[in-house]
Amino acid sequence: MSAKRDRILFWVILTAVSVLFVYPFLWLISASLKPRDQVFDNVLIPTTWAPGNYVSIWQVAPVLSWFVNSVVVAIAAALTVTVASAVVAFGFAYFRFPGRNALFGLVLATMMLPGAATMIPVYLIWNSVGLATTQVPLWAANLFGSAFYIFLLRQFFLGLPRELFEAARIDGASYWTLFWRIAVPLCRPALIVVAIFELKASWSDLLKPLIYLRDPALYTLPRGLKAISDQFGQAGEQRWEIVLAGSVVTIVPMIVIFFLAQRHFVEGIATQARKG
């Protein structure tokens, strides 16, 4: 009996906490649909509806091209990091060769390296090849894989039965065939996890676009939202309804992807724990 009462109590607490977590989203969406003078009235259902805010925002800022830029950069970042990390992870998982453990230790060690430590020389590299004000630096480093994803994918590749590869070797398959035709199809769920994680990381990134992008036409959505909030927010014209609509446009695509790929998000996070 008491176990059941406890369970109901827990359920009530969790529901109350959930309201705290969801309310800011509801507030944001509702406020983005209000006229300027009612933004802060903290009423959930707008007294006066102003869906025109979403028309105004396309007029005052090139939001559509920012959206396209974000999509292009995020897809490039996710694709490159997934393929490159998988290639490297397979190298560590399948082969036995001198220097393997030392190199893998190095991969793990670089996970601790803060991005800030290399930020300035990396900028100078892109500057010296004339790409410092383009979108290329936002994703091109992903061509070389990323330590955490290499670690994650190596775990999955190690889980595949070795006989599978040996049989294929006897049949004359090349190493690349082992990777591309056997390992990759069997680890597709893990690859999706990596791609989605990077998609989210790239979509949210503010620092790199701040460093590299000068031309507003090249902005990604987070950089664009920052520009909108500089122009129309606290220090600017105080047109909060524009800033709010911009926030919604930045957030919603990620929420949609989250709902589509929820299972993979949760799997990916849970795998992080096993590493601990």
Partner: peptide, 18 residues
């Protein structure tokens, strides 16, 4: 609980001010 995690931090900063 996971929804705020997928929200870009720049939007979190803007929401903070409001």
């Amino acid at each position: 609980f996971y929804l705020p995690v997928v929200t870009p931090k720049v939007a979190v900063g803007v929401l903070f001010l409001l």
